[in-house]
Design a protein around this nucleic acid. Sequence first.
DNA 1: AGCACGCCGACT
DNA 2: GTCGGCGTGCTC
Length: 820
Amino acid sequence: MPAVMIAQVAVEQTAIYFDKGYDYLVPPSMQETALPGCRVLVPFGRGNRKRQGIVLSVRQETALESIKPIAAVLDKAPLLSNELLSLGKWLREKTYCPQFDALKAMLPAGMSLRLVASYAIAPDVAPERMETLAPEERRIVQHLADSGAHVERERLLEIMGLSPESDLPEQLVKKGFLTRSDDSVRRIGDATVKMVRLALSDEETQALLEGKLTPKQREVVTLLSQAGGASVKEVCYFAACGVSVVNTLVRKGVLEFYANETYRAPVKERPAQDAGSIRLTDEQQKAFEQLLTQYQAGGGVSLLYGVTGSGKTQVFMRLADEVLKLGRAVLVMVPEISLTPQTLSLFYRRYGGQVAVIHSGLSLGERLDEWKRIKNGQAKVIVGTRSAVFAPCEDLGLIILDEEQEHTYKSESSPRFHARDVAKFRVKWHKALLLLSSATPSLESFYQASRGRYTLNRLETRYGDANLPAVSVIDMRLEPPGTGNALSGPLVEELQENLQAGRQSILLLNRRGYNTFASCRSCGEVVTCPNCSISMTYHTANGQMMCHYCGHMQPFTTKCSHCGEDQVRYSGFGTQRVEQELIDRLPGARILRLDTDTTMTRDSHERKLGSFAKGEYDIMIGTQMVAKGLDFENVTLVGIVSADQSLFSDDYRSYERAFALFTQVVGRSGRGKHAGRAVIQTYTPDHPVIALAARQDYDAFYKSEIASRKTMLYPPFCDLCLVGFVGREEEKVQAGAREFLHELKEVAQRDYPKLPLRVLGPAPAVVCKVAGKYRYRLLLKCRDTAEFRRFLMGLLVSFGKKRGFSEVTAYADMNPEGIL
DNA sequence: AGCACGCCGACT
DNA sequence: GTCGGCGTGCTC
């Protein structure tokens, strides 16, 4: 028997329960190119339909069994190194995702390929058989016979004037008139935003508005005649209509679509301007030296705990200098790129053309370019968000995870990884240093540092000896009842004073419109989304109620759908509501509202922050994002409108999050020459977390919180694994969760008697129904060990194979950030 | 998941 | 007698 080459391939569209490395024959013509890390096209399943795959490994073997050959190699050179292939395997084991999905997460989105079906006339179709076909079918066959070529499905259906979902070509394949092939590969194009504008002249538009239009059409036309162009999404939002209205107007020739690249290009010219030496304070110098020593000794993980304004970035830069000198790459991870423009520009100024940026604000093409620059070694300093942790550096020396406690580092969709864990894998591989940095470290990280698993460095001096702001806690119970005001008297007075002194203020709200629900004063019924079981939010801009989960909109009405009384009122306060109150109570103040509603286009965010910095506004009001990394000299007052909502969300981490948030917000005030003040409004003024945040006392907070985690058995003293169940029928989802639990108990008892395990649930998820699908969950208090992973993977595989629960999908999420 | 094969009911 | 329903098992 002659030896043949066999490639093990990770195939796309597999579920975890039948996911494995599939063996394929490497034909002689591909032996030079079908290397590990390359994408290939392989026949899969009974029908041998083509699927994409990634070669995991190649080996020689004597051919015994019949084995299918690889159909094509899609890349000239491997996209993934050995390191990243290994990381992919690790990712699959840790996050219970299919191998292909794990690897795909490491590739830039601009590289994704889509398989396209195309059809051609089958050989030897007897003309008389054509008679048996319906006219529609005959047209298709005739067209393909005439053209004599393969035609892509989409184009064929368009030419034939059929709907894109039509089943006719497939039927004709079954009947033997056509052949189908799936090896046509198309690059997924850049995501452009679909824009719409008026197609008529001003006079024509005017005439149209005087003529007959439906009310919604009139609304849209009026809106666009004022706004010029807008994205379809925006038009629908502000005109409170569906896309069909826009489509109709386009068909009538009143409007036209156009594409818009809303993304900003990464900085094109990149001269390094600021390559001089960095002056470190004694404290910074000490941290830097310790870190450098650790790096030279083979790296590992270190926590840099530095209070706000202690100059952590200076330390990063000095370390990066040293690592770059040795020709190794530096990866700088930030939680959200738009919140750290300062950090980004600092790195640009210092390292110029060596910098690459990776984040979702780039177009697909730009992301691809940056990825290539990293892969070929042109870019050695990579700044990016979560997905940048997979940057294809060949030789990595340093990874910095800035604001390491941020939840954005955890992926909430498959593969559900934490960038911190991936970074740990990578520094181990490269013998590099991982630097976790924060002013309010996660309990987990500080715990690891305190027991010596990570080294710890502290920066405790605020830059320029700026003082902490004076914090006053306002007891909202003492406010006169019945005013419905979100802002207390003392806070409004402070704002007034600040306004008169020509200084700026920042107000923090928890979530956009979190509390702006509408309820009936008569029967208490809350207006709830018909698709998702959550209360809807009132939006002033268009007078609509909106569901933040599925996007459903409906007009606000005072008539209660439950009791029929005319008593529905909206209450609570979202950002829009507080904005209105500020307008009423502080006439003349210039107010900037910053939240995801007003931040529809990406760079408007930065523009707004820019104009706030220039002093074009007096008061900025916003959600969490106002708390992050912004440094405005003239801000001397910050207010937390409602501390209680952060403190009392139903999550074991709510104190930790609230402490971090309050600490950051309070730290925003008084960063310049002037002393700062902070106001915290609450109904529980004696809550210890409030006092600790006011003093910025992390150590005391850590001490009390870690003690409670230990007694209550929460991370870091265990791991918390969520097993989620999703499906269209509530009973089946619930039954699935029960069945899973049943088997879990059985298998644990029989095969894993020593595994530490406590099970909570099954329970419906907090938001039980999202976009027509029901969700249940089990919560496992466990230890994330290899043995536990084998146990859970076994259960997931076995559940997936169960015929009776095929409409229910189960997934696992280790230490999720939020438990929705 | 997706797809083909197979074994039962409604039909020319 | 055949077409097509969806239950069942497999994917190198």
